[in-house]
């Protein structure tokens, strides 16, 4: 249901701001590695909820829990799991 996806987006944005993530990456955005609310938190939250909805069921509580998990994952785990390249690794 589309309403759950909208809820995932809104709750991920609100929670991301509460967790003090910036709303957008630094400018120029296309070269920024900074983690932000819109990118990638919302993308991760939407993807995770899409997986949940496909394999399980539509659920408003699941949408909220997934939005919280996506924010926590982005804020604390993402950069440890897939860190930005160290200078010298790329050209």
């Amino acid at each position: 249901m589309i309403i759950n996806y909208i809820l995932v987006i809104i709750s991920a944005i609100i929670l991301g701001l509460i967790f003090k993530l910036p709303l957008l990456p630094d400018k120029p955005i296309r070269r920024s590695w900074k983690i932000s609310v819109i990118y990638p938190t919302v993308i991760i939250a939407l993807g995770l909820y899409a997986i949940w909805e496909y394999f399980f069921f539509h659920d408003i509580y699941a949408a909220l829990i997934i939005a919280i998990s996506a924010v926590v994952f982005t804020k604390f785990i993402l950069e440890k799991l897939v860190p930005p390249p160290v200078r010298g690794d790329s050209s």
Partner: peptide, 9 residues
């Protein structure tokens, strides 16, 4: 949406 998540990683 699932593809976008995996493409990001």
């Amino acid at each position: 949406l699932i593809a976008a998540l995996f493409v990001y990683f």
